[in-house]
Design a protein around this nucleic acid. Structure first.
Lengths: 366, 366
DNA sequence: TTGTATGCGTTATCAG
DNA sequence: CTGATAACGCATACAA
């Protein structure tokens, strides 16, 4: 139970060696003899030696830590998708001996927070979450010259920094095509905040798919907000009880989709009999397995799926690699989302296909 | 655009002062003249001086950081309730200039992780999440002599360490009483993992309330698992389609409650007409406002409510206070959950009150 | 009110 | 292969 802190000096004294040799032995330098190394390692374990992080950091100039700045949403909310990202990244950090630093910042105030933790030497690299379409954080971090990886990206084909992103545009095109192949023509979009690049791209995909079949996107059934449950509920309520309701809903996350289902149930409707629902599924673990599996093992929601946890893992790997090789080129990965057919999509209801008074028919079912 | 790192020495040189004076001026020591202090502060800002965290930490022995070890659940999942805790705690950390360190650990492996970040001097204090009924982490941290605060607690009236907890026992007694006052006699419990103290206490409250009215708890309608959506779905499915189904469900979190609602809808049932549902609501922001508010501003779920975000805030405050006053006594706070009546509870359905074949009647409604 | 000297616990440079 | 010794950047006891 030796609770007294044992430092390098004491360890070296106990071994009758110099601090230098002990340090080298512990850090795997090749020039130390294997017998000495074994002795040192054994003694270090026995005496419970742990190198001081701040001393090491001061001496090397490396913090062995990575910073994450998470933005307070409009509801002073931390994006719940973040837990799953964290699970993926944290696993990698643990494996490579990196610390994870977390700071909150109000939307727009991230730069100060980044600057602070970087210039005080607390981190060797940072992750950018939720990039906007034209995000000041990217030029800012580039000017600082610190390694960073963006979860998502900004403009078209950005090459000046590292990022990992889902092909959101194509994912929503495919989703829309899938619904139109089933006969749907009027499809609502319940999107995330379109200042965010991922949501902007999703809207683009949605619009492109519609227009490719000669359908003009209708702003009356397109929404853009923080992806939370009540939002899905309100949006679904609005379009399903409005005039000319859509026969299908394209929803940007499982969270608002749950709200959509609540609205659907409250209106006495059923999916997919009355309305089809297609979701972008980030594989949130607390809604897993299979984004709410049904008894037969088929996922509940039909979805475009891409694991945010895997993204966290890969981004952490990339960032650590980048920290290790300062001169390296930026790297990019564009992932394709997978279409998974569940229970919430089906062919356009017959009543819908017949007349244009479908709104009334929907409402009358209550 | 001075990107070169300016340290205390350079700043002092630029000012024609000694490092000592500059340091004292910046750290608010009283003995420095106000004119000097103003000069120093101005120059520090102008030259973009930020003290090195590792140097300060090495010199003072304080890390100005707080460690959180989050446990991987059975599904290799990070508890989504954590984002809201984080939102509360992070706000306080930001205010007091503390860093938040996050590490993942497999269930049971937390001690090594705590030991590592503590003995390497990365943190000044730690938070314990999700304490078990007899949690080895508490004696372990006490033996280390590091400030820590537990979110929850372990045995009866523990006094040897600081904690903040909800009165889970009473909350579930009240919930159960509320349902029984409505006429319900057969109430299912969809609980969290009862190795965890909070869930254990909830079960105690549930059982005590039942027994106080002469009802023997029935293990056939009591569940204990990770509080995720599919769990709620499965449990609800099982009891509602089984023989002798309950007329009310007591659910430990909004997450499984969403799964419960999915099962209820799939069975063609309605709440509260066919079945009452009462939830413990942690005020998760991504399900806010009002745990899924309905149009009239009344919350959707009837719930026992206590904000996990507020808990995060208060725990952070307590811990920082404790770090500042080493000799202090442990502090405890026991919060009462609030009963909020929503739309998912109602009197016992008539059919239930009449016969004992209610299971059949439920099923036949499909 | 300001300055000098020293220590914090490592790693890194340079000799041996 | 090993060992003195000097940084790293700040805080602080002690002097002036």
């Amino acid at each position: 139970m030796s609770r007294e802190t044992v430092n390098l000096r004491k360890l070296a004294e106990a071994l009758g060696l110099s601090q230098t040799t002990v340090s080298r032995a512990l850090n795997g330098f090749p020039e130390v003899s294997e017998v000495t190394r074994a002795r040192v390692i054994e003694a270090a374990r026995r005496l419970n030696y742990r190198p001081s992080a701040s001393a090491a950091s001061l001496a090397t100039g490396k913090a062995r830590a990575i910073g994450h700045v998470v933005t307070f949403g409009d509801h002073m909310m931390v994006n719940p998708h973040f837990t799953d990202f964290l699970a993926g990244a944290g696993e990698v950090y643990a494996r490579f001996g990196y610390e994870m630093l977390l700071r909150l910042a109000p939307a727009g105030g991230e730069e100060d927070v980044y600057r602070d933790m970087i210039s005080r030497g607390r981190v060797d690299g940072v992750v950018v979450h939720g990039p906007l379409t034209d995000d000041p954080r990217i030029p800012f971090l580039r000017s600082l010259g610190i390694p960073f990886v963006v979860h998502g990206r900004c403009g078209e084909d950005p090459a000046g920094y590292s990022w990992i992103d889902v092909n959101n545009r194509r994912a929503f095109m495919r989703a829309c095509d899938f619904l139109m192949d089933l006969g749907h023509r009027r499809i609502a979009l319940i999107n995330g905040i379109e200042r965010m690049n991922f949501a902007d791209r999703r809207r683009q995909g949605y619009e492109a798919a519609l227009m490719a079949r000669g359908i003009r996107p209708d702003p009356a059934i397109m929404f853009s907000e923080d992806m939370v449950e009540p939002y899905g509920y309100r949006a679904a309520m609005e379009v399903l009880t409005g005039r000319d309701p859509p026969s299908a809903l394209l929803v940007s996350s499982v969270l608002p989709a749950i709200g959509v289902m609540r609205a659907v149930a409250e209106l006495g409707l059923r999916a997919p009999a009355d309305v089809s629902i297609l979701v972008f599924d980030d594989c949130l673990s607390f809604l897993q397995p299979g984004s709410a599996a049904t008894p037969r093992g088929i996922p509940f929601f039909t979805a475009m799926r891409s694991s945010i946890r895997l993204a966290g893992r890969r981004i952490a790997e990339l960032l650590i690699e980048q920290i290790g090789t300062p001169g390296g080129e930026p790297k990019h990965e564009l992932w394709e989302a997978e279409l998974v057919v569940g229970h919430t999509t089906g062919p356009l209801p017959v009543t819908e296909a017949v007349g244009s008074v479908s709104g009334q028919s929907l409402k009358s079912r209550r």
